[in-house]
Design a protein around this nucleic acid. Sequence first.
DNA 1: ATACTTTACGAACGGTCGTTCGGAAGGGCA
DNA 2: TGCCCTTCCGAACGACCGTTCGTAAAGTAT
Lengths: 199, 199
Amino acid sequence: MSKGQQTRAIILTEALRAASVEGFQGISIGMLADRLKMSKSGLFAHFGSKEELEKTLLDEAARRFMEAVWQPAMKAPRGRPRIEILFSSWLAWSINHEDLPGGCLFVALASEVDDKPGPVRDHLAELQTQWQAMMMRSAQIAIQEGHFRADLDPRQFAYDLQGIFLAMNYYRRLLRDGAAVQRAEASFRSLIERAAALH
Amino acid sequence: MSKGQQTRAIILTEALRAASVEGFQGISIGMLADRLKMSKSGLFAHFGSKEELEKTLLDEAARRFMEAVWQPAMKAPRGRPRIEILFSSWLAWSINHEDLPGGCLFVALASEVDDKPGPVRDHLAELQTQWQAMMMRSAQIAIQEGHFRADLDPRQFAYDLQGIFLAMNYYRRLLRDGAAVQRAEASFRSLIERAAALH
DNA sequence: ATACTTTACGAACGGTCGTTCGGAAGGGCA
DNA sequence: TGCCCTTCCGAACGACCGTTCGTAAAGTAT
């Protein structure tokens, strides 16, 4: 790895941390440069514009998300076990205070960019649409495997799962409810039971 | 109403609209002054600091929320009917594009301020804690009235309701899913059925 | 109408923002 | 080693930020 790619990776890691806490509006080139003890212009040169940095951050976050959440799930057996791993990895991703001290970056950014037309919004919306599709597809597989009811609506399943996750973030980060994760797990178990095929 | 209170009210209405779209970080004194065709310093004088403006906005939003969501519910019969009105008013509040073109202000702010210690964060967290308590209390009343199962956990009920609402905002505003409201209503019906007492 | 207070304005403050540019230092290959 | 090209820096840019201040105008009460 060349010197440039090396510092670029360091910048991305630090910027992801900062963005998970402050959002894209809250991070600035100067602040990142200070934290990394380099010059504003030096850091800036790696991306050419702040918008380009933001798009790069979205890609890097998506890459890490796939690695931390999706890949473990794909190693699990198809159907219900896979969905259970998917959800627990998802929770763990959001709670991982090392890489994302401000919690899930996508949640932090959703409200910030949803009304700002532009490539950053488009990029995030596409990533999140893909994520909904992945959850939906996982539910379809669980139906195929006979784990879930045949008349289950996979889209509604993905919607409910997303709601449980968003509520967890909200309870945990804003309300500082120590039981947020347990509540999420309780809702998840209830959702799975309702989805499960009868025996 | 004196002249000062009058312009103050106009400022608040415009600032609420702007904040629902851009968040507190995204609004500035100068931008609001431009939109209202008045001077920066003239607008500023009404609040003394931006933080004071933000706190005032939270209070004003809470006042309107009570008026639009809570009061209609309190007029409905105790128990299940009240909870149904509560939820539909809540959805309507979030979709009211006139006053809040960027959707529910509290949702928009939650991620923005949850990691920023200070009076604004404290204020929002308290308002939202109260809101959770109101939902919980409504569920308790529904149990008392015999509409909901006696072993229902009201806290978990409030958590699930919050999740349905957050997912609706997320699907509607970021993913631009036209069916977001229907999905929310479907999840709500399912939640109510599970909570309902058996006959 | 007079006197006093409230309300609004324009100019200016130090600071930070993203961005540009010319040049110095250092890594990577011949 | 010598050379080039990547990497990084410092200084400066115009724009905007929240905030301060002195002052003029408008509102309000007697």
